[in-house]
Amino acid sequence: MKASVQWVGEETFLVTSESGHRVVMDGNQGATAPSPMEMVLLAAGSCSSVDVVGILKKARQRVDDCRVELSAERAEGPPAVFTRIHMHFIVSGKDVSDKHVERAVRLSADKYCSVSIMLGHSVKVSHDYEVVETD
């Protein structure tokens, strides 16, 4: 995998992925775009969400929505690495099985989400979930 990062002025950078997608990032604590650390947190949540939705679809669960609320704590001094990340999944749908959601979240956390598993080697990563019934 390859990517490039180009400085575009002040503390703003244009990131281009190998697949050609571009993202703006801001080194000024997220003043004009997400900061690199915010992007790491967003990547962990996105990666886990992809897993959870995919696992639930394979289990033929009628999922209408899946959202993950992320919270993180960072070390006080440099480097201000993440020390804790918590992912709270909110899965909405018709007759969605609590057991299936628990399994999907666990499989993502323990086996599939390369981002959160990688972070888990140095950060305490926790997960929980809730199921919301829809009509």
Rank of each mutant, 00 (worst) to 15 (best):
M1A: 12
K2T: 14
A3Q: 05
S4Q: 12
V5G: 11
V8A: 12
G9D: 08
T12P: 10
T12K: 09
F13L: 10
L14S: 12
S17C: 03
E18K: 15
E18T: 06
S19C: 01
H21T: 11
R22C: 15
V23Y: 13
V24S: 15
D26E: 11
D26Q: 03
G27C: 02
Q29E: 15
Q29M: 10
Q29T: 05
A31H: 15
T32L: 14
A33P: 00
A33L: 05
P34A: 07
S35Y: 12
P36I: 04
E38W: 02
M39N: 12
L41I: 13
L41C: 03
L41H: 03
A43S: 02
S48M: 05
S48K: 04
S49D: 08
D51T: 04
V52T: 07
V53Q: 04
K58F: 07
A59N: 07
Q61P: 07
Q61I: 10
R62L: 15
V63R: 07
V63M: 03
D64V: 11
R67M: 15
R67T: 13
R67G: 01
R67V: 15
E69W: 06
E69Y: 05
E69A: 05
E69H: 08
L70G: 02
L70R: 06
E73R: 15
A75W: 02
E76D: 10
G77T: 09
P78W: 13
P79R: 03
P79K: 01
F82S: 01
T83Q: 08
I85C: 02
I85K: 01
M87D: 00
H88R: 09
F89M: 03
F89A: 08
F89P: 00
V91K: 09
V91G: 04
V91S: 01
G93S: 05
G93T: 09
K94H: 15
V96Q: 03
V96D: 06
V101C: 14
E102I: 11
E102T: 11
R103Q: 13
L107Q: 03
L107C: 13
A109M: 10
D110N: 11
D110M: 10
K111I: 02
K111C: 12
Y112G: 06
C113V: 00
C113W: 01
C113G: 09
S114N: 06
S114F: 12
V115P: 05
L119Y: 10
G120W: 10
H121N: 15
V123N: 02
V123I: 11
V123A: 04
V123Y: 03
V125W: 00
S126C: 14
S126E: 05
H127W: 06
H127K: 02
D128M: 01
E130I: 07
V131P: 04
V131Q: 01
V132D: 00
E133T: 12
E133N: 14
T134D: 14
